[in-house]
Amino acid sequence: MDELARRQVASIAEVVEVTGTAGMPVWLRGGWAMDFQLGAVTRPHLDVDWYCWRDDADRLAALLLARGWLPDPRMPVETQLDLVVGDVEVSFAYLGRDRAGRPTVGGGSWAGAPLPAGMLDAPSGRIGTLTVPTISVAAQIEFKQMYPV
């Protein structure tokens, strides 16, 4: 694992610690989620992608900003929370809920659109001793297939 990956894993551990203490659920998504489901770092990653409930985003930002994270001024806040710490970039895409409590897109032009069934029901992933909530592998694949749309 290279040095950037070590710092990214440290940021993942920090997010898990902060959100766990605050009772705020988050789910790893993207390449790091796949690596945690596989149990090993499989490739270099540009950033760390998460999901959080839109209602928790302001509190989450405040907790991480108090620990030295900074807002990423390049990114719009309507669709996700983007923060940096050193050379580590993290994003928290917002989740909403429909009337039945199922997860939906939580912000931006697709707000309210349904997300894949069972997406948040995956077992946690693990690399070494670090265990992290992730979205389901099936949802990851569905997103990759839908990406051009």
Rank of each mutant, 00 (worst) to 15 (best):
Asp58Leu: 10
Pro44Asp: 10
Gly39Gln: 09
Asp35Tyr: 00
Leu63Asp: 06
Tyr51Met: 11
Asp49Gly: 06
Cys52Gly: 09
Trp53Asn: 06
Pro44Ile: 01
Ala33Gly: 12
Ala61Phe: 01
His45Asp: 09
Ala61Cys: 09
Pro44Met: 01
Asp58Ala: 14
Tyr51His: 14
Ala33Val: 01
Ala61Gly: 08
Asp56Asn: 09
Ala33Glu: 04
Met34Gly: 13
Phe36Tyr: 12
Pro44Tyr: 00
Trp50Tyr: 15
Ala33Arg: 03
Asp55Gln: 14
Thr42Gly: 14
Phe36His: 07
Cys52Glu: 05
Asp47Ile: 02
Val41Gly: 06
Thr42Pro: 08
Ala40Pro: 00
Gln37Thr: 11
Ala57Thr: 06
Val48Tyr: 09
Asp35Thr: 06
Asp49Gln: 02
Trp50Met: 03
Leu63Asn: 05
Val41Ala: 13
Ala40Lys: 13
Asp55Pro: 06
Trp50Cys: 01
Asp47Trp: 07
Asp58Thr: 12
Trp50Lys: 03
Trp50Ile: 04
Leu38Cys: 11
His45Thr: 02
Ala62Asp: 15
Arg43His: 11
Asp49His: 02
Arg43Lys: 08
Asp58Asn: 11
Ala61Arg: 05
Leu46Glu: 15
Leu38Val: 14
Arg54Trp: 01
Pro44Trp: 00
Ala33Ser: 12
Asp56Gly: 00
Ala40Thr: 14
Tyr51Ala: 07
Asp56Ile: 00
Arg43Ile: 06
Leu38Asp: 14
Asp35Asn: 03
Leu38Thr: 14
Val41Gln: 09
Phe36Ala: 05
Asp55Arg: 15
Trp50Arg: 02
Asp56Lys: 03
Leu60Arg: 06
Gly39Leu: 11
Arg43Tyr: 08
Val48Ile: 13
Arg43Gly: 13
Leu63Arg: 04
Phe36Cys: 06
Ala57Ser: 11
Asp49Phe: 04
Leu46Asp: 13
Leu60Cys: 00
Asp56Cys: 01
Pro44Phe: 00
Val48Thr: 11
Leu60Met: 04
Gln37Tyr: 08
Ala40Asn: 09
Leu60His: 05
Asp55Lys: 15
Arg59Asp: 10
Asp55Thr: 15
Trp50Phe: 15
Asp35Gln: 03
Val41His: 07
Arg43Glu: 09
Asp56Tyr: 03
Asp56Arg: 03
Val48Ala: 10
Val41Asp: 01
Ala40Tyr: 15
His45Lys: 05
Trp53Lys: 06
Leu38Ala: 13
Asp56Ala: 00
Asp49Tyr: 04
Ala57Gln: 01
Gln37Ile: 12
Phe36Asp: 03
Asp55Phe: 15
Ala33Tyr: 05
Trp53Tyr: 10
Gly39Lys: 07
Arg43Pro: 10
Ala62Gly: 15
His45Glu: 08
Leu63His: 08
Cys52Met: 08
Ala57Pro: 03
Leu60Asn: 04
Ala62Arg: 13
Cys52Ile: 07
Ala57Lys: 01
Leu63Tyr: 02
Asp58Phe: 05
Val41Thr: 11
Thr42Ser: 13
Cys52Ala: 13
Ala57Leu: 02
Ala33Ile: 01
Leu38Trp: 12
Arg54Pro: 00
Trp53Arg: 08
Arg43Thr: 10
His45Arg: 04
Asp58Val: 10
Asp47Pro: 00
Ala61Pro: 03
Trp53Phe: 11
